[in-house]
Design a binder for these strands. Structure first.
Length: 478
RNA sequence: CGGGGUGUAGCUCAGUUUGGUAGAGCGCUUGGUUCGGGACCAAGAGGCCGAGUGUUCAAGUCACUUCACUCCGACCA
């Protein structure tokens, strides 16, 4: 394997990970800046990744019985104010519309930071009987949160996402939905994005504004920082009471329904970059890569090369997202270019290969070269795509395992992080908010989640040494 | 929101200290030679020096304001 760095205008990730990240999003043509802080152009290559993610996720939502809808982008202030915790959580970061044309509005409108309130207003209009339940809705929209610090994909002021909103007859059904959708997200991250995640529950202080409980999937990035990759919330009947959503139940009594919401966003693209990328650029998981395989003709001016390359392209087209680069850039330039863009598989085809009835296949994540017969090219490329997915997943999982540490005291946490850099720390917790805050204060690592898969590291709290209740996953977060 | 850094050609940057006709490399265009890891030669195009106000005979350069990007914190899902 050849690990030389082939692209010298990307900052090395070991030297400056943050700079490396911004270099990648610019050089791989994922985003462009605009004159509004934190509002980005998602360029065709970046958007194509999102479209692939959407297509796969949308299929999973449909398969679990959900319907797509679309709510307005404005929320009247009075509507946002109806649920106390919710408005307190979101008010500091909403953008307001105060004028229509030159007329000042009677009531200002906020640009949706999330759409719970709109869904609730709608539910109150359409739900009357237990026969109207459940409603399993989802929408693909953008939302606005006026963030102070912005970073492409990871934290922007406007971002694309999907938000699922469901409403159920019983609490048990809503809890089941919350857990089911978290599972869908975890499966998507692992099967489509090759990104291993930890499923867990958020602590009280960290849950969504207005939720009874919040579940999340947490991923560990290459630099040891955690990324919340998706969330799923159980609301109980709190929103229903605040918005007066009622139905006649099976005993003909007035009853409050139970709700959930869940979302993932373009932030996942940031997660892909920081999970799989290296000093040569992006490395995209095949399932979402806009181009899965690129054909590079060698000595394209020589007789028969271009014709053979086009023939190959046609053959692959049926089952692979394939591109043929006929530009007159040098082969070396193209190698570097497509590596930077993270294309999983490269096919080199030159006069020598054609003579032998073969071609060279190179996989992005490890740069391994394989010579294959042109006869079996389709199967060979499909096989290589699976290898890239598995290779990316394995590499990411190994990074997480290597960077996950068990600690019994906060001093141990500090030492571990100083010696090894950031990562996940598994440590016990007594359940008090004071200790949660103190750990963050002392170590810089906050609570990421209470993993579903519990293990007893110790019987005492990592902070106060009183009896521990649960194991918590701690880490520095994006 | 606090602290640092940066805005000059499409990109990366020099020029600012000491005010005096706008620079380089890469990229781009045209033609030719090349082609198995970022090729070479020749000719060309390309700028309201982030925006605004001020000082000055004269501002990329000095002062103030503002916007954006970026890093570190705080906040945040």
């Amino acid at each position: 394997m050849d690990n030389r760095k082939m692209v010298d205008d990307i900052t090395s990730m070991d030297e400056d990970f943050a700079k490396w990240y911004t270099d990648i999003v610019k050089k791989a043509e994922l985003v462009g800046y605009t004159s509004i802080k934190g509002c980005l152009v998602i360029r065709p290559y970046g958007y194509a990744i999102w479209e692939n993610m959407q297509r796969i996720l949308d299929g999973m939502f449909k398969a679990t019985g959900h319907e797509n809808v679309c709510m307005p982008m404005f929320i009247p202030e009075s509507l946002l104010n109806k649920e106390k915790d919710h408005v307190e959580g979101f008010a500091p970061e909403v953008a307001w519309v105060t004028h229509g044309g030159s007329e000042k509005l009677e009531e200002r409108l906020c640009v949706r930071p999330t759409s719970e309130t709109l869904f609730c207003e709608h539910y109150s209009n359409i739900i009357h009987s237990y026969r109207d339940l459940p409603k399993l809705y989802n929408q693909w929209v953008s939302v606005v949160r006026w963030e102070k610090t912005t970073r492409p994909f990871l934290r922007s002021r406007e971002f694309l996402w999907q938000e699922g909103h469901t409403i159920h007859e019983t609490a048990a059904q809503a809890v089941e939905e919350t857990e089911k959708m978290l599972g869908v997200y975890a499966k998507f991250c692992e099967d489509a994005l090759a990104m291993p995640v930890v499923k867990g529950k958020k602590t009280e202080s960290d849950k969504f504004a207005g939720a009874v409980s919040t579940y999340a999937i947490e991923a560990l990035m290459h630099d040891g920082k955690a990324l919340q990759a998706g969330t799923s919330h159980y609301f109980g009947d709190g929103f229903a009471r605040a918005f007066d959503i009622t139905f006649s139940d099976r005993e003909n009594k007035k009853s409050f329904p139970h709700q959930t919401s869940w979302g993932v966003s373009t932030r996942l693209i940031g997660g892909i970059i920081m999970t799989h990328g290296d000093d040569n650029g992006l490395a995209l998981p095949p399932a979402v890569a806009p181009i899965q395989a690129v054909i590079i003709p060698i000595a394209a001016h020589k007789g028969g090369v271009i014709e053979k390359a086009r023939e190959l392209e046609q053959k692959l087209k049926a089952s692979v997202r394939v591109a043929l680069d006929e530009s007159d850039n040098s082969p070396g330039w193209k190698f570097a270019q497509y590596e930077m863009k993270g294309v999983p598989v490269r096919i080199e085809l030159g006069p020598r290969d054609i003579e032998n009835g073969e071609c060279v296949i190179v996989t992005r994540h490890n740069r391994e070269k394989t010579v294959v017969k042109l006869d079996g090219i389709v199967q060979a490329v499909e096989q290589k795509l699976r290898e890239v997915h598995d290779g990316l997943y394995k590499k990411a999982l190994e990074n997480r395992i290597k960077r996950t540490y068990d600690c019994k005291t906060t001093d141990e946490m500090i030492d571990v992080m100083r010696e090894n850099g950031d990562g996940f720390i598994r440590a016990m917790w007594c359940g008090s908010e004071e200790c949660e805050d103190a750990v963050k204060e002392k170590t810089g690592a906050g609570s990421r989640c209470i993993p579903f898969e519990q293990e007893s590291i110790s019987d005492k709290c990592v902070c106060c040494q009183r009896p521990a209740k649960t194991m918590v996953l701690w880490g520095k977060a994006y």
